[in-house]
Design a protein around this nucleic acid. Sequence first.
DNA 1: ATAAATAAGATATTTAATGTCCTATATACA
DNA 2: TGTATATAGGACATTAAATATCTTATTTAT
Lengths: 144, 144
Amino acid sequence: MRLTRAGEYAIRCMVYLAHKGKGIQVSKQEIAERADIPAHFLAKIAQDLARAGLIAIKQGPKGGYSMLKNPEEISLLEVVEVMIGEIFLNDCVGRPRTCKASKQCSVHKVWEEARAQLRRTLGKVNLAELSESDSCIPVFLVHN
Amino acid sequence: MRLTRAGEYAIRCMVYLAHKGKGIQVSKQEIAERADIPAHFLAKIAQDLARAGLIAIKQGPKGGYSMLKNPEEISLLEVVEVMIGEIFLNDCVGRPRTCKASKQCSVHKVWEEARAQLRRTLGKVNLAELSESDSCIPVFLVHN
DNA sequence: ATAAATAAGATATTTAATGTCCTATATACA
DNA sequence: TGTATATAGGACATTAAATATCTTATTTAT
């Protein structure tokens, strides 16, 4: 597992949208500026988030992005895994074929456990909680 | 955090040595073959392990590697962190400078917690346990 | 002294992430 | 219905890191 920059950006984008609320549309530009994400890169990330059913994208003038679910219904894990795929801590667990002995391997078991634990921790947190308290996004409690 | 191939190899190498026992010297070639590690790559990895005080390296004919501590005294976490540095799950936590709001950020807190949990899990397991039961290394319970 | 075994550093090779650019498409509004 | 605006989607460039290999140097047993 490695949270890529794309992953961090996706979280920021979703936290920003969550703060606005379900169904509230926000322009790409606004998100890019306020959440400090390169605009072109955000476009990519948004496409992934849309494909995963987390946000809706509207084209044209007054276009933008909006959350499709309630922030409570989206976990941090969900956002992360949309961007980087299912979380694994090592190849051995992620691609069992590369490891001959994974079935009985004691090392393997530890990584499996660690992985499950990590996914549980990230799965317990939802976007509502994250957007209520302070977050990475610099003061976005501004009227507009 | 991403367990690199070098990390996986280091674990295999250490588990192999642990199985032999503290102070028992094994040639690089033997380890490379039995633990399925590219020999040249193993040399690099061994240098890191030696620098960290985990193994001793002996040059010359009848040279090789040996464990400097009892297997019980070395945790999986220790081996991993020698190879990939202190474990972090994301940039934000690893390099706080890149994130302005890390102090009060709610997302940051989750990653911190997840990180601590992961390190605890890996820290609880030692090489003795790992080498006693079956592991990644294909049947090395062979006399020589 | 010689041969064997590893050290250390330089240098490919590969892979992935990151970021940018260009053309296409959708849509609000005049 | 046409035009301007905003995003889509794919191609491409750049950077960075991991992985692996090769060459020369050093150590040491005999």
